[in-house]
């Protein structure tokens, strides 16, 4: 019994360390790649290839004064970044990053919390994330912050729907709400050679889910809550120092989580096609699968970054049009078609 708790604690500590380190890496990667796309070099002075730049930035943020506006609601102003970061970090808990592994004489599931309604947990927690932004916008007592907060809540409501509906297609195919079962369902092969990843079974759901994920993480084509040219910095206009850093951390953790969820639901999770025929020991195979998961997540994160520097920001009415008039009907049609096909088969 004690062993179970110990394993959970170890997994949790490892997970937090890994996420925080990868946030630093992603921050560096984003700045480097955006620089490369604009024919610049980007941060390259601190450490090898500028890898320690973000670490230095964190130290800088630590040393900055924590300014709270006079007319702000101080308690909520403090609370908002905490909500943001807590929500961003806790979503990852249900994502399986490897198959069940035999270790120290016991079976260890490579996910932090084995929840039997994993997807519902994930959906509900990500929708809590909007409270961080909205409260930050409201508590700052600044018109730009307030507009940013309002936009983020409106955007979240519009895209949560199509996100949920696109997941329904996946649920109908795999027949379970457990994320590890959904991944296991994707490890078979279609027609003997094509991996049965949900991206091949549910391409439309994949596109709608990916677009909604961009909107949920407030990444560039949909970053209206912090649209710089219109709203100064949106919801975090009045934040300085480490509280601002927490919002940044939350944004990048959200990107990691969104990528991990996309990989789990649509890209086969930790499944490396044909790896089971390599003849590796079970432990070696598990390590390979964890690496596969990491590489897949990294590639999706790269996609997030590339999209940020490719597609310009949507106008507010275009955002709403896309959410309600395009994404929602497409997601519903996908559910209907999937249901019909499943009935016929």
């Amino acid at each position: 019994m004690d062993n179970v708790y110990l394993v959970s604690v170890v997994k949790f500590v490892m997970y937090v360390a890994i996420v925080l380190i990868s946030v630093i890496l992603i921050g560096w990667l984003e700045r480097r790649i955006s620089a490369f796309m604009q024919n610049r070099t980007g941060p390259n002075r601190v450490g090898p290839f500028g890898l320690l730049q973000i670490l230095i930035d964190v130290v800088k943020l630590l040393l900055k004064e924590d300014i709270v506006p006079k007319s702000a609601n101080k308690r909520i102003h403090d609370l908002a970044p905490i909500i943001s970061i807590a929500v961003a970090l806790s979503t990852f808990a249900v994502v399986p990053f490897g198959n069940t592994i035999e270790m120290f004489g016991s079976e260890v599931k490579l996910m932090i919390a084995d929840v039997n309604v994993g997807i519902l947990y994930m959906l509900s927690i990500t929708s809590l994330g909007v409270y961080g932004l909205t409260l930050a916008g409201w508590a700052s007592n600044n018109k730009y912050s307030l507009l940013g907060g309002l936009r983020s809540s409106a955007q979240m409501i519009s895209y949560e729907l199509s996100m949920g509906l696109s997941i329904i297609g996946v649920l109908m195919v795999s027949g379970t709400l457990r994320l590890d079962q959904i991944v296991l369902h994707q490890t078979s092969y279609l027609g003997g050679w094509l991996p049965a990843w949900n991206i091949f079974l549910q391409p439309v759901a994949f596109i709608t889910f990916a677009v909604a994920a961009f909107a949920e993480t407030n990444r560039l084509p949909f970053d209206l809550p912090e649209a710089e040219p219109e709203l100064v910095a949106g919801y975090h206009t009045e934040y300085t120092g480490l509280k601002f850093g927490l919002f940044m951390l939350a944004e990048y953790s959200n990107v990691i989580t969104a990528s991990a969820v996309i990989v789990t639901l649509f890209l086969g999770g930790w499944h490396l096609p044909y790896a089971e025929y390599l003849g590796l020991s079970p432990f070696g195979l598990s390590i390979l699968q964890i690496l596969t998961f990491c590489v897949k997540v990294a590639l999706v994160i790269l996609f997030f970054i590339v999209v940020r520097w490719t597609i310009p920001r949507f106008r507010y009415d275009q955002l709403m049009n896309l959410g309600w008039k395009v994404m929602l009907p497409v997601a519903i049609a996908n559910v209907l078609v999937t249901g019909l096909v499943l009935l016929v088969i």
């Binding site: 790649i33 490369f36 796309m37 604009q38 024919n39 610049r40 490719t310």
Partner: peptide, 12 residues
């Protein structure tokens, strides 16, 4: 287009 820009020489 943006990905092809990554591999172009830098101006800096």
């Amino acid at each position: 287009l943006t990905i092809s820009q990554i591999f172009k020489p830098k101006f800096t």
